[in-house]
């Protein structure tokens, strides 16, 4: 439809306003991450929107290479929390994707496990806070507290609904002729699944895995409850980066926040096409 010029002007003005609101918080953190300590909490006329003396010292500080002219030295660097976030999110994604994909195929092709549909929606509905008491007790019993594998297991369960529903809609959409032809050729059904279906579904599998990874990587609450010291993840470590002596370590936290924020934003843009499907449990496709 042809639009009038006033409308186009209004549209660009509105979109630019939305872009500004969207970007200011992000850019403020990016700017803070490169500010030297003197500019961290400068206020009033000294408030700097963009670092006057850009520096990498905040990044060096969180990795323990510089004390950033602070009195405190970190008792540990950001390295291990990053490793912890990576390990728990990657293995959590692996658990969710393997259990979810297998179950989705079983339901999509053989009608097995009908109960999983409702059970997994319910699993997503509950606030994690409301089921964490038994989980904390069980994890303590299994000696899983404060370990990356304990986190990976709970992440795998928490994101299983997304893996399952995403893969189920992908399998439902997939034409079955090729599978049927292979069956006629004498392939067993398991072989059809592993040798024909899965390789064909490589792209959807990758999108679903990225989606699930973003969710796992974004967790704060579960890690806050299940890790205490050894294997805290980036958000938990970041929140602990302040001391009564020095107050908020703005720049250091912003540097860490930037490190945490970049991977999911890139991945999210990469799988933009499937976001709607993922977020609505496959109820909507784009």
């Amino acid at each position: 439809m042809k639009r009038s010029i006033p409308f186009e002007i209004f549209r660009y003005a509105a979109i630019l306003a939305a872009l500004a609101v969207t970007l200011v918080p992000i850019l403020w953190m990016v700017s803070m991450a490169f500010k030297p300590i003197a500019e961290w909490s400068a206020t009033g006329a000294d408030l700097t929107w963009w670092p006057k003396n850009p520096t990498l010292s905040n990044f060096q500080f969180v990795f323990g290479e510089s004390t950033n002219s602070l009195i405190v030295a970190l008792d540990r660097t950001a390295l291990k929390p990053i490793v912890s976030s990576l390990l728990s999110a990657v293995f959590g994604t692996a658990i969710a994707m393997s259990a979810g994909t297998a179950a989705a195929y079983g339901l999509s092709r053989f009608g097995a496990g009908q109960n999983l549909q409702l059970a997994l929606i319910q699993l997503r509905l509950f606030p994690p806070m409301a089921v964490m008491i038994p989980v904390m007790i069980m994890w303590a019993f299994l000696n899983f507290n404060d370990t990356w594998w304990g986190l990976a297991l709970i992440y795998g369960i928490v994101t299983l609904p997304f893996a399952f529903w995403l893969m189920k809609t992908f399998f439902d959409d997939m034409p079955r002729e090729i599978e049927e032809a292979a069956l006629v050729e004498g392939c067993s059904r398991l072989r059809v699944f592993t040798r024909i279906t899965l390789p064909m579904m490589r792209a959807p599998l990758a999108s679903a895995a990225l989606f699930v990874f973003i969710l796992n990587w974004s967790d704060y609450l579960i890690a806050l409850l299940l890790t205490t010291r050894e294997w805290v993840t980036i958000p938990v470590y970041m929140a602990s980066l302040s001391s009564s002596m020095t107050g908020q370590l703005y720049g250091a936290k912003a540097a860490l926040g930037l490190i945490a924020a970049v991977p999911p934003v890139i991945m999210g843009i990469a799988i933009q096409r499937h976001l709607v499907r993922g977020l609505t449990f496959g109820a909507l496709k784009q």
């Binding site: 999911p264 934003v265 999210g268």
Partner: peptide
């Protein structure tokens, strides 16, 4: 793409922003 970015930012990091 830019307008979608906030929902991909780790919520804890957004809180810090």
């Amino acid at each position: 793409s830019i307008l979608l970015m906030p929902m991909m930012v780790v919520p804890a990091v957004a809180g810090y922003m």
